[in-house]
Write a protein that binds this DNA or RNA. Structure first.
Lengths: 146, 146
DNA sequence: CCCTTATATTTCAAGTTTAAAATTTCAGGC
DNA sequence: GCCTGAAATTTTAAACTTGAAATATAAGGG
């Protein structure tokens, strides 16, 4: 039996490969079928989830990306009219971002098809698999905060 | 109980978050302690694994990145003297990449500390967890090829 | 030998990503 | 009111990443 560290390493590499391959599949799907990208989709999904609007800081925290990154993607979405920025009235540093009507409509189409792609990718998992995996992932999330 | 597609979606988002947070942790570790980056580490790890040398195509396939991407990272590593390119004698299109002596030495230090970081991140998992997770990840890998 | 097709790599433009610096605003202590 | 430090956002430079186009070479059929 390999030492634990080597087994962890192998698992991590496998995890990375599955994630990267899946991301690659979704990227390709978004590009070919909807002429958009994964970062754009991620931002729109976050804004859809919090329909009332999100600050830039919250957005980058939700997506685990840097502030500057969020700024860049939101800039492009705003240029395309899919997203709107609004200044806070109580704190002039804060800016709220939200989907426009056009953004909302586009995202609802995107989300439905994205969900189908997820089934293509992971539909082979049983209910038990899902429960087990979710449980393990939850515990893996703790390690970063140690 | 949520429909399967929603449960898959939740799992996928959780998987993505764990992976991104862990990558972020490792990136920070490599930057602060070793003044290097994750893509550079990944390339060096692939070359360490196949000490005899790898073609550019093999390299991008191993890392699941585009050809152009592999070229760019190898360019930078080559400029720093950590990696060497050699033309194939039998096929003039093919180029082999390998670690230099300096690259090999640097990587062995990097790898040992990287392994410790992996323990920090995931050491909380039991042997059973690891077996279960590996098994599920193997099956998840199948979906992409459907 | 020529032509076509396929393979290996690089180049290129555009977009993504990060970390750090700069800007603006806020909040609290004095 | 003023100062200081913190917070929210943008800007910047450099690296990374992609997909497509360009280049060079190989392989096989006629």
């Amino acid at each position: 039996m390999l030492p634990q560290s080597k087994r962890l390493l192998k698992m991590w590499i496998r995890l990375l490969r599955v994630t990267r391959a899946s991301e690659s599949h979704l990227r390709e799907f978004l590009r070919v079928n909807h002429d958009t990208t994964l970062p754009r989709f991620d931002v729109m999904a976050a804004l859809y989830r919090r329909r009332e609007g999100v600050t830039m800081s919250d957005l980058s925290r939700m997506l685990l990306v840097s502030n500057g990154n969020a700024t860049a993607v939101v800039d492009r979405l705003e240029k395309d009219g899919l997203v709107r920025r609004t200044q806070s009235t109580t704190d002039r540093r804060t800016i709220f971002v939200a989907l426009t009507e056009a953004g909302l409509q586009q995202f609802e189409v995107l989300a439905a098809e994205h969900e189908r792609e997820i089934i293509t990718l992971f539909g082979g998992l049983s209910d038990t698999d899902l429960d087990t995996l979710t449980d393990i992932l939850k515990r893996m999330g703790k390690g970063e905060r140690a």
